[in-house]
Design a protein around this nucleic acid. Structure first.
Lengths: 196, 196
DNA sequence: GTCTATATTACGATAGAC
DNA sequence: GTCTATCGTAATATAGAC
C-alpha cells in the first residue's frame, strides 16, 4: 500500500491519492492511517492540506458532478431532435465517466451517511431527472419505444453506463469514444441481430 | 420462507435485520451498535447468535450467490438455442435479484477488504464468466450481434441488470416478471423504435 | 437469551516541535 | 510541511450476572 513519496503535496495531488484508496477499500473502509501510508506522509500532515476525510470526499464528488452537469450544457445536448440529444448525452456521459473515472466511481458509491454524501445523492438525482425528461421527449417524438416508462428506461440506461466504473481500467492510448459507441449502440439498438 | 417476527432471534431472523442496515449504511459504515439498535437487542446478545459482523456478511452473500448459481442449473439455461438460454438466464437473474433483493444488493457492493468479501467477488466472477460463454455461443450461432465483444456485452448486460438494486423497492403484489420483461426487452432490442 | 460492564484496539483529529 | 505524541471517542468483542 505504501507508495513512493513525492516532493510535496497540494490538496489536488493528495486528492488523487485519496480517491484511489477510497475506491479500493470503500470510503468508510478507509482510515486516515490508510491514506497516510498510501501518500507516504503522516496522518497529521494530511490535515495540513485538508480539513479532514470528508473534505476529500467532497472535493472528489464535486469534480465528478461538475463534469457530468457540464455535458447537459453542451450544444449537442441542447439542439436537435430529442433522440439525438439523448444519444449525445449518453455518449458524452460515458466519455466523462471514463475521463474522470476515479472521481465518478467514488460518486456512484456514495451511500448517504453524511451531509456531503446526501448532497451528492441529491445532485445525482437532478442529473438523472434531466436525462429522464430528454428520454420522455424522445418517446413523445416517436423515436424511442413508448411501451417502457421513461423513468425506468433512464434507470436502466444509466445502470448500464455507470456499471463501467466496476470493471473499466484505463490503459495508455485507450480509445474512449469507441467504448462509448459500443455502449450507445447496445442501449439504443440492443444485443439482437434482428428485431422480432 | 417465514418472515414472521419471533419472540427471540435466530441467526436467520437476525440476518434479515442486519442486511437491511448494511444496505442502508454500507457494511463498513455499520457498527454493531447500529445493528443492536435496529434489532432491539444489545450488542452482546448479537454475539450469542453469530460469531460477529463478518459472519452476517458471509451468510448474506452466500444466500445471494446460491440463488444466482441455481439459475444456471435450471432446464431453461441448459437446453435450446444459446440466444434463448441467454434470455432465460437474464430474465431469471432479474427475478432472483428481485426475490432476494437485500442479499443480492449486499453481494454487489462488497469491495474485497476481507477474505469473505474476496471469496464473494471470486464467485461473482465465475457466474459472469458462465454467462459470457453463453453470449459468445449465441453470437456464434448468429442470433446476437457479433461486432461487440462477448465479455463487454456481458458486462453491460449485467451492469443494467444489477443496477436494479440501486433503486427498486418491492411493494405488496409487485409483478417481478413484468419488470424482468422490460429489462430483457431493452437489453436485447434496445430503446429505439426502429433500427437504423 | 438477554443484559450491564468492560477490555482492547482503532479511529479522526489536534498540539506543538523542528 | 512534516513529524512524533497524544487526546477523546467509537469500534469489535468478551465476561459474567440473571
Amino acid at each position: 500500500m505504501t507508495t513512493a513519496r513525492r516532493d510535496t503535496y497540494t490538496p489536488e495531488t493528495l486528492l488523487s491519492v485519496a480517491v484511489q484508496v477510497f475506491n479500493e477499500r470503500g470510503y468508510d473502509g478507509t482510515s486516515m492511517e490508510h491514506l497516510s501510508k498510501a501518500a507516504g506522509i503522516s496522518k497529521s500532515s494530511i490535515y495540513h492540506h485538508v480539513a479532514g476525510k470528508e473534505e476529500l470526499l467532497r472535493r472528489a464528488v464535486s469534480r465528478a458532478l461538475d463534469g457530468l452537469f457540464a455535458v447537459l450544457e453542451e450544444p449537442g445536448a441542447l439542439r436537435g431532435r430529442a433522440v439525438e440529444r439523448v444519444e449525445y448525452v449518453t455518449r458524452r456521459t460515458v466519455e466523462v465517466l471514463l475521463a474522470e473515472l476515479p472521481y465518478v466511481t467514488l460518486l456512484l458509491r456514495v451511500r448517504g451517511n453524511t451531509r456531503t454524501e446526501r448532497w451528492a445523492l441529491e445532485r445525482r438525482r437532478e442529473f438523472d431527472h434531466a436525462v429522464a425528461d430528454l428520454l420522455k421527449a424522445a418517446a413523445a417524438e416517436g423515436d424511442l419505444r413508448a411501451d417502457v416508462d421513461s423513468r425506468l428506461a433512464t434507470r436502466l440506461l444509466f445502470g448500464m453506463v455507470n456499471s463501467l466504473v466496476e470493471w473499466y481500467r484505463p490503459y495508455p492510448g485507450a480509445d474512449h469514444s469507441q467504448l462509448a459507441d459500443a455502449v450507445v449502440h447496445m442501449a439504443f439498438d440492443g444485443l439482437r441481430t434482428s428485431t422480432t
